[in-house]
Design a protein around this nucleic acid. Structure first.
Length: 283
DNA sequence: AACCACGGCAACCGCCAATAT
DNA sequence: CATATTGGCGGTTGCCGTGGT
């Protein structure tokens, strides 16, 4: 445990090569930021801009390291930071991009406007990776395939189902067709399609799961293909900004807070379903 | 009501590359 | 060219809220 009391957090005194405590470092604060510190940082950056973080920290009168200031600004205070749960679309994008790039969080974050690498990393570790450990998929590659062939089609279908449900309950329409077509050109026909894409290469076990649960993979294929194309072309055609999904939520309000919460727990639902159909889990 | 276990997430750490001196 | 500084990244830690007993 680093700090018994984070509000009085002080680092252990650094020592010179002779073992003499360096006095000035003892003034550096650590731990949670206070409102006052946040205000100082925001005001300073508003007036003078970002960069030269060590100098910035001193000039702003903050008893923090430059690194700490930078982190606080980029991960929390910056005006365009989005708070709250990741949307299903964002979750899908993370799954896809991670399957391509691995733990390149900052690279992934660049394609989710308003989301930080830290947030995405936390999502992956607390939500996705936890499931990878629980579902008996030993190697990472197997898990990626599980995500691609089982998890993502479910996520896509749940997006559609849940929005249809909301439509029934509130007389609003289902997921807007424009959004669906942006997200996945084949999703709008998923309920009627029994055709399986030959382009998806799933391990037999997960292909079987899809069959058992009457899932088809065209939607996944369409999504994956889209991401592939986007990646190959510098992804400009497929980030959340370009498909305007985020803005669409805010403007059309087709997805409520409660619904977002429900969707946020989709991985929980899918995990239970995995158990129900006999996939080994460790709990 | 009290205690405990767990999950989420903000913040820190160490390393490395780029840039400045 | 060598060294120092800065910025960026991924991994890890530990506080705190919440739900279960």
């Amino acid at each position: 445990m680093l700090n018994a009391d984070p509000h009085m957090a002080m680092p252990p005194l650094k020592k010179s090569s002779l073992g003499i405590p360096i006095e000035e470092d003892s003034e550096l604060r650590r731990g949670p930021w206070t409102l006052e510190e946040d205000t100082l940082l925001i005001h300073y950056i508003t007036r003078h801009g970002e960069g030269r973080w060590n100098m910035l920290a001193k000039s702003a009168g903050l008893k923090r390291t430059g690194k700490s200031c930078r982190l606080r600004w980029l991960n929390y205070l910056k005006p365009d930071i989005k708070r709250g749960n990741l949307t299903p679309q964002e979750q899908l994008l993370i799954l896809e991009l991670h399957s391509k790039w691995g733990n390149r969080w900052s690279k992934i974050a660049r394609h989710l406007p308003g989301r930080t690498d830290n947030e995405i990393k936390n999502y992956w570790r607390t939500r996705v990776q936890k499931r990878a450990r629980q579902v008996s998929v030993d190697d990472g590659k197997g898990f990626v395939e599980a995500v691609r062939c089982f998890w993502m089609p479910r996520l896509l279908r749940k997006v559609d189902e849940t929005s249809s449900f909301k439509g029934m309950m509130s007389s609003q329409s289902s997921v807007p067709s424009e959004l669906l077509s942006c997200m996945d050109p084949s999703l709008s026909t998923i309920k009627h399609s029994s055709e399986k894409s030959s382009s998806v290469t799933c391990p037999t076990s997960f292909a079987n799961i899809s069959e058992q649960t009457e899932l088809t993979s065209p939607s996944t294929y369409g999504h994956s293909q889209m991401v592939n194309e986007a990646c190959n072309s510098g992804i400009s055609g497929y980030d959340m900004e370009s498909i305007s999904a985020v803005g669409f939520y805010e403007e059309s309000n087709w997805i409520s807070d409660e619904m977002t919460d429900a969707l946020w727990n989709i991985d929980e639902m899918m995990f239970r379903e995995l158990e129900e159909i006999g996939i080994n889990t460790i709990i």
